[in-house]
Simulated assay, not measured.
Amino acid sequence: MAAGGFCKLPNGTVVVALNLPSPTVDAATGVRVLVLAQNRARALTRLRNLGLRAVYLRGNAAPPTPDEITAVLHHPDGLIWRTAPDNAVASVPELWRPIRSLLRRPAAQP
C-alpha cells in the first residue's frame, strides 16, 4: 500500500497525500495522510521528523482529491489523517484527525 500523490496549489505550496500501513498492530486497514508544505521534499521531511522514517513518494498514482485539499488547508497544523477508504464500503466517510492522535501511544495497562 504505497500509493500516493501530490497537487501543486496556485500559491506554490504542495499538498501530498500518502496511503500508509497503519502503525497500530490491531488495525487491518491503512491510513491516508495529507501534508501541506512548501514542496514535496519538505512534506516528506515533516512525516519523517514525526517518526515515519520509511516514507517515500513515487509517482502520482493517488493525488489528493479536491475535498482532501480543502480539509488540509483548513486544518491549523496542515497535517491530518484518516483510515484509508475501502472501495467495497461506500458508507459515511470518516472525519479527518490531527496527526498527533495517530502517533500517540496507547496508555499502558496496569
Rank of each mutant, 00 (worst) to 15 (best):
S91V: 10
P66Q: 13
A54W: 09
T83P: 00
A54Y: 10
A37L: 08
P106F: 00
D86H: 04
S91D: 13
S91F: 08
P106I: 00
G78Q: 06
S22M: 07
L95R: 15
P23G: 02
P110I: 09
N49R: 15
R97D: 06
L95E: 11
G30T: 13
P10G: 01
A90S: 15
R40E: 15
S91L: 10
D86K: 08
G30D: 14
G12T: 07
I69P: 04
Q109W: 01
S22Y: 00
A54E: 14
S91M: 07
T70V: 02
H74G: 06
L9Q: 00
P98W: 05
A90E: 03
K8T: 07
P23H: 03
G5H: 04
N19E: 04
N60F: 09
W81S: 05
V14E: 05
D86F: 03
P66E: 12
W96L: 01
N49P: 02
A62G: 08
S91Q: 10
E68P: 06
D86W: 00
T24P: 13
R48G: 11
G4M: 03
R32M: 00
T24Q: 14
T83W: 09
T65D: 03
W81M: 08
G78I: 01
L44S: 07
Y56A: 11
V72S: 01
L95S: 07
V89W: 08
N39H: 15
A3K: 10
N39E: 13
W81F: 15
R104G: 06
R42P: 06
L95W: 08
A107K: 12
D26N: 12
L103A: 04
D67P: 08
R53F: 04
V31S: 11
P23Y: 01
P106V: 02
R58G: 02
C7W: 05
T83E: 10
A107T: 13
W96E: 06
R53N: 06
T45R: 08
T29M: 14
A62H: 14
T24A: 14
R32I: 01
I99K: 08
V72L: 10
P93S: 02
L73N: 00
A88Q: 11
